[in-house]
Simulated assay, not measured.
Amino acid sequence: MSTLVNLVRWAVPLRSASRHLHTPAAPSSAAAALELIRSQPSQYVVANFVGKKYILTPRDLLTVPHLRDVKVGDVLKLDQIHELGSREYTLRGNPVISPEKVQVEATVVEHTKGSMEIKFKKKRRKGYQKTIKRKHPFTRLRIGDIIISPDASAQPIPSLSS
């Protein structure tokens, strides 16, 4: 009998606490959304780089397949940004956000090789055995700050209902 009373007593505060959740109002324009994201302490982007999408934050270390035409210290500009977000709000491009609104740079830190991969080939009853060893080459990039331009034009965000 006392366990039933304890369960009811603990369930009441949980129900009342759920009514006080704060949900921020959605901004009406892209400029307002960018301003809201800029005011947050941490931002992230979803960028397409070398054919893959990566979730990136400032000062991240990104390892990608080897880039032949770059040297250590080169600065690369990420121009295919699909999504920009913070803790409060996310802005998605259609399909990408224009490079005038958001700029992200990556600096080449090093060219390196991965761990040793070993392939073993064999044919039965023929005496054929072969061991292939390989280290895949990679390029490491350091992601710079996410720069959200303050002069973004105030265009209304299209609604989802049609």
Rank of each mutant, 00 (worst) to 15 (best):
Q103D: 00
V8M: 14
Y44D: 14
M1D: 04
H82Q: 10
S2M: 08
M116T: 08
D79F: 09
I148K: 00
L7F: 14
P13L: 01
N48R: 12
K52C: 06
V64E: 06
R140T: 08
R38L: 02
S149C: 05
L34I: 04
K130M: 12
V75A: 07
V72W: 06
P41Y: 11
A11Q: 15
V108T: 01
S149G: 08
G51H: 04
A31Q: 13
A154R: 14
A33T: 02
E117R: 10
H82F: 08
W10N: 13
A25E: 11
Y128W: 08
E100C: 10
H82R: 05
Q40K: 06
V8C: 06
S115V: 09
A32R: 06
V50F: 11
P41F: 06
S161Q: 11
D151C: 04
Q80T: 05
T63Y: 06
L91N: 03
L78M: 14
V96P: 00
K52F: 04
R125T: 12
K126M: 15
D151W: 01
I132M: 12
S42M: 15
V104F: 02
I81C: 00
S28G: 07
S39K: 13
K119R: 08
I157N: 02
N48P: 04
R140P: 07
L34K: 02
L14E: 11
D69V: 13
I118G: 08
R124D: 13
S16L: 07
K53L: 11
R38C: 02
V75K: 06
A25K: 00
V64C: 14
I157C: 07
S162I: 07
T107H: 05
N48S: 15
E35D: 07
S98V: 02
M116A: 05
K122V: 11
G85R: 07
I146M: 01
T3L: 02
F120C: 10
F120A: 12
L141A: 05
A32T: 04
L84W: 01
K119Q: 12
I146E: 03
T139M: 09
K77I: 08
V50W: 13
P58M: 00
S16K: 07
P156T: 15
A47S: 05
Y89Q: 06
H20C: 06
S161M: 12
G127Q: 09
S86E: 03
G73K: 07
